[in-house]
Design a protein around this nucleic acid. Structure first.
Lengths: 192, 192
DNA sequence: TATTGAATAGTCAATTTTGAATATTCTGAA
DNA sequence: TTCAGAATATTCAAAATTGACTATTCAATA
């Protein structure tokens, strides 16, 4: 539903053909969707069938004809409805990177540390890229600020995990208890 | 690939049939995957075809036979490889909720505020649920801590967005410039 | 002026995901 | 005991997504 909202919202600002939509999303809105090219086309033709958008075929030279999409009043209605719905709700974030964390205790703690430090480096690089981005206009800027805020927060969390892991493996060197110590440490510290 | 890692990792701890896997994920690991029941079954039979897991059909009474899966050495190898890969990389988070934010300026600012405050309430409820969760064992606890950290950070960000929106609509009441003011405000404030 | 590679524009078969249905067993209340 | 509904366990057809491909135009350079 959110991808429809995205397409409707963009078409509302100006009519476009599939590739333009895809390009724009790819360049400016990757932080809020994974929509790929064929999915974009698929969605568009579906939305046409549902009467949310109208198509105008335009042929330039002997190119394959481009389909230019524009919003119908029906589409406009759905836009407002979906926009309100999207803004009012909260969808919990799924962290695929946490699958690995779920099995962190299977690894020797030194190896775990190594890997997490590589993750940390990858995050720092991503953050640097975000911060170096040329200033975007309008609400795209908002999304980038959001992503920056998020990555900083994730970096802080990862740093604290790494620190715990380090001190746990320190004491493990003494008391031979390994990662078990860590779980207790972290599950108790629950700062407001 | 991450869902395979998840299934492999769980099967490595003990053999299980599809429903058990699904149930366990549903109860303890929803913060790191969206894997639905039929997808779990699909993945399992695919992994069987790939020689990553073995099946043992067990029939109890005249129930439909249950397929119990266990890891093969091949599966074990892939587990370690995928685990290291997962831990070492960082996959940027996609915020579907940001689709709405991308069109925030299309709404009258009072309406935008209303909706975002509802989102805020939804987030607070989710956080409360997380915090009330009975203490989980092992690394599941880690994932919950992560989710809590994340939601707190998101709440802070949303609060600051709402505050900016409020002060922007205050000045709009004076200078009639509406939401335009907001974008400038936020895109400049970039705290270290 | 050819040639090559990037950018533009879209499609398709194959894969993956999903909602909904099926079927059995268990639990407890009437 | 019996009937209803929850829990267990899986499957399937329909829908959505993807990687890989096709094809044209444009820009630069050999």
């Amino acid at each position: 539903m959110d991808d429809r909202l995205l397409l409707l919202g963009l078409l509302r600002q100006s009519e476009m053909h599939g590739y333009q939509l895809y390009e724009f999303i790819e360049r400016n809105l990757t932080t809020c969707t994974n929509l790929k090219k064929p999915s974009a086309y698929f969605l568009l033709s579906k939305m046409e069938a549902e009467g949310l958008v109208e198509v105008q075929e335009t042929r330039t030279g002997n190119r394959p004809p481009r389909k230019v999409y524009r919003l119908t009043p029906e589409g406009e209605r759905l836009f407002w409805q979906s926009l309100e719905e999207n803004l009012a709700q909260f969808i919990p974030t799924v962290f695929v990177g946490d699958v690995g964390l779920a099995f962190l205790d299977q690894l020797p703690s030194q190896r775990a540390l190594d890997l997490l430090q590589r993750r940390q480096a990858a995050m720092q690089m991503y953050l640097a890229k975000l911060e170096a981005l040329p200033p975007h206009r309008g609400s795209a800027a908002l999304l980038i600020q959001h992503q920056i805020h998020h990555v900083r927060s994730e970096l802080a969390w990862l740093a604290s995990l790494i620190a715990d892991l380090q001190s746990a493996s320190q004491s493990a060197a003494l008391d031979e208890k390994g990662l078990k110590a860590l779980e207790n440490t972290r599950s108790k510290s629950n700062p407001k």
